[in-house]
Simulated scan of single mutants.
Amino acid sequence: MRFMVIVKATADSEAGVMPSTELLAEMGRYNEELVKAGVMQAGEGLHPSARGARVRFSGPARTVVDGPFAETKELIAGFWLWKCASLQEAIAWARRCPNPMPGESELEIRQVFDAEDFGEALTPELRAQEERLREQVAAQQKSGA
């Protein structure tokens, strides 16, 4: 199973406060553990929402809203993509994480859908397309494109 582990934003992360050298070192050690255990598939920090935008959909209409966004508790400051046997394993890894922010912070763990989760709606043609796209992405990442 794959899980996205979401690092929730804080007032500091939204203000652009960068992590200390000590926190970067702690997170580096933690990420090494995740990689050695075969858990970590990806992970990145995100710039504050002031440097982002949202695209809202209403039928065929599209509206772009520039950041920053007001509800800090609903924003994301970073993420990992983990491969774990269960939600309980993902929780166990999250409990070992250094506090990602000064003060209080929160991680949210969400299971990523797999092809099987879509049942009959994912036709053989759509499944083949999905596989082809995954292969193309992997090839692009490998070639550095």
Score class of each variant (00 low, 15 high):
residue 2 R to S: 06
residue 5 V to W: 04
residue 5 V to P: 00
residue 9 A to P: 03
residue 15 A to P: 03
residue 16 G to Y: 06
residue 17 V to Y: 00
residue 19 P to A: 04
residue 20 S to I: 07
residue 24 L to D: 11
residue 26 E to G: 01
residue 30 Y to H: 15
residue 30 Y to L: 09
residue 32 E to K: 15
residue 33 E to G: 10
residue 34 L to E: 08
residue 35 V to T: 14
residue 36 K to V: 08
residue 38 G to P: 09
residue 42 A to K: 02
residue 42 A to H: 11
residue 44 E to H: 13
residue 44 E to A: 14
residue 45 G to K: 08
residue 46 L to Y: 06
residue 46 L to V: 07
residue 49 S to V: 02
residue 50 A to W: 01
residue 52 G to Q: 07
residue 54 R to K: 14
residue 54 R to W: 05
residue 56 R to Y: 07
residue 60 P to W: 02
residue 61 A to T: 12
residue 61 A to G: 00
residue 63 T to V: 13
residue 66 D to Q: 10
residue 67 G to N: 04
residue 67 G to H: 02
residue 67 G to D: 05
residue 67 G to P: 01
residue 70 A to Y: 00
residue 71 E to G: 01
residue 72 T to A: 11
residue 72 T to P: 04
residue 73 K to R: 13
residue 73 K to I: 01
residue 76 I to A: 03
residue 76 I to Y: 00
residue 77 A to E: 05
residue 80 W to Y: 15
residue 81 L to T: 10
residue 81 L to C: 11
residue 82 W to V: 04
residue 84 C to W: 02
residue 88 Q to H: 09
residue 89 E to S: 02
residue 90 A to N: 03
residue 92 A to Q: 10
residue 95 R to M: 12
residue 95 R to C: 10
residue 95 R to K: 14
residue 95 R to N: 12
residue 96 R to P: 05
residue 98 P to I: 11
residue 101 M to T: 08
residue 101 M to G: 01
residue 102 P to F: 04
residue 103 G to L: 07
residue 107 L to I: 03
residue 108 E to L: 02
residue 109 I to N: 04
residue 109 I to Q: 03
residue 110 R to M: 04
residue 110 R to D: 03
residue 112 V to M: 12
residue 113 F to Q: 02
residue 113 F to K: 01
residue 113 F to G: 03
residue 113 F to V: 02
residue 115 A to K: 07
residue 119 G to L: 04
residue 120 E to S: 14
residue 120 E to Q: 13
residue 122 L to S: 03
residue 124 P to G: 10
residue 130 E to T: 12
residue 135 E to F: 06
residue 136 Q to W: 11
residue 137 V to Q: 12
residue 143 S to C: 01
residue 144 G to T: 08
residue 145 A to G: 09
